[in-house]
Computed example of a mutant assay.
Amino acid sequence: MINTPKSIYFTHNFFSLINTWEQRKLGEIFEYLQNNTLSRDSLNYKIPNIKNIHYGDILVKFNEILDGSNKDIPYINPDLDLSKFSKSLLRDGDVIFSDTAEDDTVGKAIELQNVNAPFILSGLHTIPCRPLIPFGKGYLGNFFNSNSYRLQIRPLVQGIKVSSISKSALKDTMIKYPKNLDEQEKIGSLFQSITKMITLHQ
């Protein structure tokens, strides 16, 4: 059975029907951060250190909004030198896309919140990016997994057995959002409530 995010099934017409919102290309309002290519062998759940977001966990474990204190985020083994990633430590509001998958979940995204010590890095087969303008908490995670945005991604996906999407392709996708940050947060809270309700029913 294909493990597709619940929000993809839930039609977010909300994002496609409101014409008064701002619309910009991702490449205009986001910057890309560096990810690492650490395998599962370089990660553990017992020795506290910098945490690492693996693409497989984005696809299977995590919902649209990921709390930095989540115990399912593994630590990087302490014997590894991570100094070259010092400028890519993630913070609240950053978004991570999974750039590959064996089904149509490729491009699934998470928004990070409550990122405190230990810090977090973006791992294998991920595309981490940071908004250059403010966004309301919870809005981006829900928008990037909405049906409206997923329809943009599908024609950009490459591959047969293993699907992938590139940074250059994502740059030209369009983001719709209200200019009012409070309104963005209310929308984010609404869809988080819907996600929780779907989870409870399942």
Rank of each mutant, 00 (worst) to 15 (best):
S86W: 07
S86M: 11
S86R: 14
S86P: 05
K87M: 09
K87S: 14
K87Y: 11
K87P: 06
K87H: 14
S88A: 12
S88G: 05
L89V: 14
L89A: 06
L89Q: 11
L90A: 06
R91C: 12
R91E: 15
R91L: 11
G93A: 06
G93Q: 01
D94G: 04
V95R: 00
V95N: 00
I96W: 04
I96A: 04
I96D: 02
F97C: 07
S98W: 04
S98I: 00
D99L: 06
D99G: 11
T100K: 08
T100P: 04
A101N: 07
A101Y: 05
E102H: 12
E102M: 14
D103V: 02
D103T: 03
D103C: 03
D103H: 10
D104A: 08
D104T: 09
T105Q: 10
T105M: 09
V106N: 05
V106Q: 07
V106H: 06
G107T: 00
G107Y: 00
G107V: 00
A109D: 02
A109Y: 04
A109Q: 03
A109V: 05
I110T: 04
I110Y: 03
E111N: 04
E111K: 03
L112G: 04
L112P: 09
Q113H: 12
Q113K: 15
Q113T: 15
Q113S: 13
N114C: 12
N114M: 09
N114Y: 13
N114T: 10
N114P: 11
V115N: 09
V115G: 06
V115S: 08
V115A: 07
V115D: 08
V115W: 09
V115I: 14
N116G: 08
N116K: 15
A117P: 13
F119P: 07
F119L: 14
F119V: 08
I120R: 12
I120G: 14
I120Q: 13
L121Y: 03
S122F: 10
G123N: 03
G123L: 04
L124P: 02
H125W: 08
H125D: 14
H125R: 15
T126H: 13
T126W: 05
T126P: 09
C129A: 12
R130F: 00
R130C: 03
P131F: 06
L132G: 05
L132W: 12
L132H: 10
I133S: 01
I133Y: 03
I133H: 02
P134S: 12
P134R: 12
P134V: 10
P134I: 11
F135I: 00
F135Y: 03
F135C: 02
G136L: 04
K137C: 13
K137E: 15
K137Y: 10
G138P: 02
G138S: 09
G138I: 08
G138A: 11
G138F: 09
Y139N: 00
L140H: 04
L140G: 05
L140P: 03
L140F: 06
G141P: 01
G141A: 06
G141W: 01
N142W: 07
N142A: 08
N142T: 12
F143R: 02
F143E: 00
F144P: 00
F144M: 03
N145M: 10
S146M: 07
S146D: 05
S146Y: 10
S146R: 01
